[in-house]
Each structure stands twice: as structure tokens, then as C-alpha cells.
Amino acid sequence: MAILIIAEHDNSTLKGATLNAVAAACQIDADLDLLVAGAECQAVAEQASKVMGVSKVLLADHSAYEHQLAENLCELVVELSRNYSHVIAPATSNGKNVLPRVAALLDVAQISDITSVESEDTFQRPIYAGNAIATVQSQDPIKVLTVRGAAFDAAVAEGGAAEIVAIATVCNDELSSFVGEEVAVSDRPELTAAKVVISGGRGMGNGENFSLLEKVADKLGAAVGASRAAVDAGFVPNDMQVGQTGKIVAPELYIAVGISGAIQHLAGMKDSKVIVAINKDEEAPIFQVADYGLVADLFEAVPELEAKL
């Protein structure tokens, strides 16, 4: 049986999270169908057809799907999923919104946020905010899964030539309707949603010096965070704190500057894909978790980093 993957897109571009979901699906089965449901989203279907590993692109192009409303999308997916062994979506806000609804209508469980494929019915997923990893086996005929992107290397976006099949089914029950949307306009992303986070610790010396980090953040489109020590020292406000009682972040890239790496802080960022530490104390515990460590005076290294990005 084949796998149905729900594509993440904005009606013009296929989003990267789809590629991670495809990669996860490839570990289960080779026969992958990618559903592009949207409005005037032909361009997305074309991009989807080029993704390596995809056998077929199902294109459901109708205004009912324009805003990915869960009620309409769910009905469509349920109707399609009878022919599949697995239904997979990236664990994005759309995927998380629609897929449990699909699972309930299929009378099967959903396994959320998988980080590893053990076999076609057994998966690993983080529980307790990543403080434990559960291995879960599905006993349902159809496995419904959401995929944590950072856990799977993206599938190759170019080179494939999958057939595009139009789906005529229109599900529009008008239970809900789109009112509006507001794309985050802030120059810097939210700490918990950012792809790149640069954080400062007590080594920053004072609050004004955080401007050094902001300049780097501007170049990388990063959010700026802080360790508890920096918050406690009054350098920056509470809401910038990463760690124990602050926020848990898991960006693609985490840059820790002048942070020693107290366990509270490590607990808040250890799920980041790549960790960089810049600290003048080579004994700092942060280096034990960093992928790339630079022993240097941050007041020299950070401006240099900014200049070279």
C-alpha cells in the first residue's frame, strides 16, 4: 500500500517542511503520493512533482482549500486515505490542525511529531517536552503520522518527474470560514518559532551589549534570546529567557554567546539542530553540547561574525 503525504504550501510555493515529511515517508515505503490541496496552486503541484521520491502528485485545486481550513481539507483527505497504509503530514500548524481530525474520522490513532521510523508501524516521538522518547507501535490499519521536520534531512527538491493527477472532489461544508490573516511583520521572528536563535549570557556584561547580537540576528533573520543568568542580572527582560522556566527552543541553528551552559539553559535548547558556542572560557559546559565551539572574546568574535555573514 502507498503513502499519502499532505503538502505544506501557500498556494504558490511548496514549503520545506514537506520535504522532511517526504524523507520520513521514504523510510517506510517507496510509493509516495503527495496531495497538494489549495486554490490556484498549480505551481505548487509542479514543484511537488520534481521532489525526488514522489510517485504521484494529487492536485485538489478549489477555493474551498485556499486557506487550509481543517473541516474541508479533512473531508478530502479522509476520502482519499482509504487507499493508503499511511497518511502523513509535516508537524506544522496546518498538519497539526487537520490530521487528528482525519485520524478520528478513520477511527484510528494519530502518532504525533515522529522523530524516527523504526519500522512501518513503529515510530519514536518525544514526550514531556523532549525529556523522554516514546517508541510507539500502531495497531491500526491506517497509520496517521505527523513528522517533526528537524529530525529528518529534507528530500531532494529537484530531479523528479511525478505525474500530476487532478482531484475533482470538493468538500465545502461551510462550518468555518476564513476571515483574515496577519503575517508576522516583526523584523525578528518569535523566539520559539525562529529558525535561527542567537542568545547571550552573563558574558555579555550588560544589556546594551545585546545590540551586538541584534546586528547578527538582523543578518540571519534570527530571534534574540538570553540565558537565565543574563535575565537575573537584569540585562534583558524575562520574556527573552531560554531554558527551564523560559522557552524551549529547537531552531535549525542556535548560537550561544557568553553563555556558560547551566543545565537549565541546556534543557531549553538541546533539541536545536546545530549549536554554536562562543565563549572565552574553554571549560564552559556549553562546549560539551556545541557542534561548533569557538573559544574567543565575544566582543571581538561577534562583530567579526556579523561582518562576515
Binding site: 535575565v231 524575562n238 529567557q241 527551564q244 522556566t245 547551566a262 543545565i263 537549565q264 534543557a267
Partner: peptide, 15 residues
């Protein structure tokens, strides 16, 4: 000390 305090599950409202 930090890793020890971590295991005490101690916390106070920040503000």
C-alpha cells in the same frame, strides 16, 4: 550546583 538545583525542581515566578 546548577545541575543539582535542577533536580530539586525548584522554581519561583520570575517577576
Amino acid at each position: 550546583k546548577p545541575s543539582s538545583v535542577f533536580l530539586s525542581n525548584t522554581n519561583h515566578e520570575e517577576s
